[in-house]
Nucleic acid binder design. Structure first.
Lengths: 268, 268
DNA sequence: CTGAGGTAAGTAAGCACTTACTTTTATCAC
DNA sequence: GTGATAAAAGTAAGTGCTTACTTACCTCAG
């Protein structure tokens, strides 16, 4: 059951720890399921670093500490391995999915859902959006592989991108959009297309994570150095003021009042 | 000057129009500069579609209608070709570039700058952000290659991503941040970190373009089908309401005179 | 008749994937 | 407990194809 330890000092010739093997020495022999899972994990890491096309099966084998043929014993083709990654990433984080495709629960949305729905029941708008933003950012930060893998997948035209959208983004748009519509009916929010609100908010959050991950890596973080909590709070504050109904009519834009002064012959 | 046409009907054997050659038959003989530029353009398109690693020199040659050896007569290595692309995409539009095709748009920030700065001088916040959003989205839509190339570049760790950030994003953060800070000093905007505002706003805009380009392509556009103008208007509305200074009693009057009321505990 | 634009046909290295073979280990009659 | 055994985990050394890049040659404008 537990990982190896049965024969660590054994033969010794299996995997020289001198180079490579950054992930796991993985020296000993493994049960098929273990090995398969390990290969998937290694492949996820490498694909997220270099893309599907940019990663060779040889590299995966080396990083996993086995020969290339092992990869092809567990996965018929490289595409097959990619498919396994989709299964893995689509359900791995729920913890309730060893490998079976039976999970219908999308991990990302599921992680988001609980705290957000709880806040929704209380009608606490601030908590809703703050929890949403924070959960998303935390997810991106805890699992930076995921964003990269997703972007590679979208750019390279693989299925993961579409699956992610259907299982996560679409769900989010639906249930957040529904909430916003409900709050509008109650007069809490002004009349904007709820989907535009979702797009604007999740866009700010996702873009923030993406820029952090691609251009402004973690320790230095020189472009915009704020905690996820601060970011969630500020983004939420902007959005809530931006869509709340009782807001003071915004600003000089309402120039129909100011007929007197500077009417620059603008458009109607 | 003009593209070929000198010997289209000539030999006939050069480029069979039966397959490939989606871009340009490019049959005849070209001057070196012409050919070089054409190769760069073709390569930009292919790299943006499949990434640097995912595009072969053979494909580039075929799409350009020449033999592979021609690529390597003009560019020592594939990396060299990539470097030429950087020049092309990063400065081709400034006009200050070796082989700048004077025809195309100015670079990103330059395109944004003119309308936005004009609105800034008028102090028309709405126009500032709307013009910014609209110019960005229009740029992304007119040149969808660019976003894809940029993302590939960032993911694959090429220089273009860094150069783009330094030459465009950083500049935008600076000069929009400065504007916001100025408006805060005048009491028009509440006290938020200007960089957070820039991140939130450009994030929403960029994310919108990215989702449109990767998940919701143009003709159908089923996830969120709005024009760039509408999107710019809505995003701007949300942002401006979101960061406008608190006006407890709605005071549409010029705020710079009214030192008394507003000015909450803002300065450090 | 020279030199620049262009090509066909390479080359060595790298790719996804196989084949033929060698351990290791769980199992079960004894 | 043994030890024969079958199945599975593992490997070394390929296979044929593709890749970035070269070499040797051609062709035609000036």
């Amino acid at each position: 059951m537990s990982r190896a330890t049965t024969r660590d000092g054994g033969a010794g010739a299996a995997a020289p720890p001198s180079q490579a093997a950054q992930t796991a020495p993985a020296g000993g022999r493994m049960a098929a399921d273990e090995r398969r899972l390990q290969i998937v994990r290694v492949a996820v890491r490498l694909f997220s670093e270099r893309g599907f096309r940019g990663t060779t099966t040889k590299e995966i084998a080396q990083a996993a500490g086995v020969s290339e043929a092992i990869i092809f014993r567990h996965f018929a083709t490289k595409d097959d391995l990619y498919a396994a990654i989709i299964d893995y990433k689509a359900c791995a984080r729920t913890g309730a999915c060893p490998f079976a495709p039976e999970t219908e629960q999308p991990p990302f949305v599921e992680a988001v859902r609980r705290p957000v729905e709880e806040a929704m029941r209380r009608g606490d708008d601030r908590a809703v959006f703050e929890a949403l933003a924070l959960t998303m950012m935390q997810h991106h930060q805890d699992d930076p592989e995921f964003l990269r893998l997703l972007m590679f997948s979208a750019l390279e035209g693989h299925q993961l991108a579409q699956i992610f959208w259907d299982k996560n983004a679409r769900v989010l748009y639906d249930f957040l959009g529904t909430y916003i519509r409900e709050r509008q009916r109650r007069g809490a929010f002004r009349d904007v297309d709820p989907l535009v609100v979702v797009r604007a908010f999740t866009g700010g959050v996702t873009h923030h994570s993406l820029v952090n991950s691609l251009w402004d890596p973690d320790p230095a973080r020189r472009i915009l150095h704020i905690t996820n909590e601060e970011a969630a709070r500020e983004f939420t504050e902007i959005l809530l003021r931006g869509i709340s109904a009782d807001a003071p009519a915004v600003k000089p834009a309402r120039e129909r009042k100011r007929t007197a002064a500077v009417k620059k012959g603008k458009k109607k």
